[in-house]
Design a binder for these strands. Sequence first.
DNA 1: TTCTCATGGTGCTATAGTAGCATCACCATG
DNA 2: CATGGTGATGCTACTATAGCACCATGAGAA
Lengths: 251, 251
Amino acid sequence: MRTKGLLPAQPNQSLIKGILCLQTMIFEARPIGTRELGRRLNLEHTGVNRLMGTLAAIGLAEKTADCKYQAGPGIHILAAQSLQSSRLLACALPYIRTLMDENLLVSLGVLWRKHVCYLFHGDNRNTLENGIGASKPFLAFKSSIGTAILASMDRSMAQRLMLQGPDRLSKDEMNLLNRRVNDTIRNGYSMVTHNPASTTIAVAIGKPAIAGLAFANINLLKIKDKRGYIKRLSGRLSDAVHRIETDLFGT
Amino acid sequence: MRTKGLLPAQPNQSLIKGILCLQTMIFEARPIGTRELGRRLNLEHTGVNRLMGTLAAIGLAEKTADCKYQAGPGIHILAAQSLQSSRLLACALPYIRTLMDENLLVSLGVLWRKHVCYLFHGDNRNTLENGIGASKPFLAFKSSIGTAILASMDRSMAQRLMLQGPDRLSKDEMNLLNRRVNDTIRNGYSMVTHNPASTTIAVAIGKPAIAGLAFANINLLKIKDKRGYIKRLSGRLSDAVHRIETDLFGT
DNA sequence: TTCTCATGGTGCTATAGTAGCATCACCATG
DNA sequence: CATGGTGATGCTACTATAGCACCATGAGAA
């Protein structure tokens, strides 16, 4: 299986920039103007205007009354096609259903640039379908899923990813992430404690990782044997991850 | 809300072609070579080779051992982002769950070129999550969802769509579709009888339609009051569609 | 075994498409 | 009213791209 990175002869810059504009617009989840998008991505605004206009012409974007761009009707087609091609959500959902018997939030997410985007985020207080597409992107370096995925990447590549661009991580942030990545590699799962009552653990799916599966909102304050509890939960995650991998990759 | 079609000054042809290549590769659901893709889309193969190489470089495609291209790891990101942006599946699933009490197959699909691509296809013999991404594309002119969506389109645009390219509809096929479209406009739902034991009805979602919701595999042989039954089912579909539209568009 | 044909991929270079500057119309704010 | 920001376009220099020619490889047929 081939990882991304190697450029062909004559890579097509318009396509690279166009897809970046599309994904950034989707990520923002609000109408966004071409100059803002251009500043955001460090692209010249005229070019962005043409790319967004082109995306609008093919239906993936649409213009709002105030001439900003948001996702257009073609996004539903893209969702249908990519969802079926990916198969990740379809494979993972049955295991997510069983994991929800822990009475914890379960999350399935992927890493896009410096954020985790969620395919699923829900618990058994709601029906399974309410968890689909239910969570907004979250900073990867603060996320257990993000940390798990980054920990599975080549170290220098992960470093480069988090340190490039205007939204690069600060020194402190990078040090925090590095510690968590080291722990993740040692433990086989990542752990982020947002506050004493809210801890998240995650396991990466795939090698190289394509996604992460997490238990979220774990309240350790109520748990006597914290280590044993975390060990059990991470074991369940790893088990589910192995099954998902088998379903996806047939290994 | 803006529909697609109007080209900006300087539309970007590389982006248009690149996304077409991406979507066609995904649609094929198998590794595909650049020359085949070029013939398929009537594009020069060198350009396709560069576009596919570029898509591979950004992770949306990957090369197989025999140098063909299939979806790459970036597809999961695209799925997560487009699923959340689209919101269609998330909005529709609760209503799909209730519709499944008819003990019929329920389908949610979108129109891509001349095919319907499915977000959902399942019944209550399986869990809801087994229906996600569960069905392959199907020829739109033979599909009730396709017919419903086409019936909601401007007539000349639908005509042009189905009559262009090497896979254009035959005269007979076009006549059949036109009859069904006329019936759909009159009835408010589309109906396709695949065989006496298998009828599908569908209602378009949105105006202009972004998708269609269907009951499939209806066995009319067992039904005394066929007209009443279809009227009731289509009423349930329309009801669900209105609710989905309200959730999606706030109308 | 050899030959033929189809494949994916690249170099080269002409050129068409694109990038970016300048400009415009419009809107919001002070 | 002036100012500044916006999205969009025209123009044109220029460069990224398109397409031809070629290569290496593999599969199938004779």
